[in-house]
Amino acid sequence: MPPKTDTTAEPTPGAGGHSPPTREMFYSEALNEALRLEMERDERVIVIGEDIAEHGGAFQVTAGLLDRFGPTRIRQTPISEIGIVGAAVGAALTGLRPIVELMYVDFSGLAMDQVVNQAAQNRFMFGGQARVPMVLRTQGGSGRGNAAQHSKSLEAWFAHVAGLKLVMPATPADAKGLLTAAIRDDNPVIFLEHKLLYRTKGAVPEGEHVVPLGQADIKREGTDLTIVTWSREVLFALEAAGRLAELGIAAEVVDVRTLVPLDKGALLASVRKTHRLLVVHEAIKRAGYGAEIAAMIAEEAFDELDAPPKRLAGLDTPIPYAQHLEKSVVPQVEDIVAAAKELVG
């Protein structure tokens, strides 16, 4: 069994005391609320994708939106990934603010030309004449027995393309706040959810809630090492930090939230405090985004480090099917505990 995932998000530090009222909700509900509020706020916002109408999306993120906004704004499509993403690019170029729901990130290969050669580059190629305010929402990750074609973590693909922003929320509150910011952003934003986060619960601010892109969040403070992570591994890291505390190790957990643009300042500040870096992600280690973070810290804060930066990540393998095998290839809580102990010890 995966660790308990109904971790309640801590209120964001530095909120100035006047935290708005919150409501407990699932991550999928938080996303749904962001969609609903933004669609109410701006009629140019539309959702386009497969099975998003009556069915409410493969993960229920668009549940109820058809009734509220009708079939032209909740535009259900045939199975045509590049056609859908390309139509969103064209719509974004001409005045709409489309949100594409791509059922699995594993299908993004089918649409990749429109993401990489069109959406990401239009502004640049046209010398600033164009804006592409679209969001490509999709989900990835393992843990549900969906096997190799429905379980990947492909954030490194998108991080390597100039012109995209890349967001991976871990908590319901961040899911709502970051999706709101992504919809309001004038650039193409890749918004990667995790299939095992949809049914996690947390306190989510009521009403308008915006988490600006490009700001990491310290999910737990500590002084002995910095664990930098994102998406579902944030929950694992928090649980690991709890166990480490019992062993007398104070781990700081930094959730990057936005991989592009990356909040370098927050990461550097944390490492300057703890002098040790552990990067954790579910995606395979080779050429993973953790390498980018480790290299960045090594380049910019080498003298601050008391130990070499360490990466803990998925094995260089497709995701296997059997439950015990699936768990064996991506970092689990005990793996994080072990890696942290080794780094500190």
Partner: peptide, 27 residues
């Protein structure tokens, strides 16, 4: 591209503009 005249761009990808025009029509 000349967006002031509605030209959403030449395209180095063969077939790349077809879905984009479709999206403009959607707008």
């Amino acid at each position: 591209a000349d967006t002031s005249k509605g030209n959403l761009g030449a395209n180095g990808i063969v077939g790349g503009g077809i879905p984009i025009a479709t999206g403009a029509a959607l707008t």
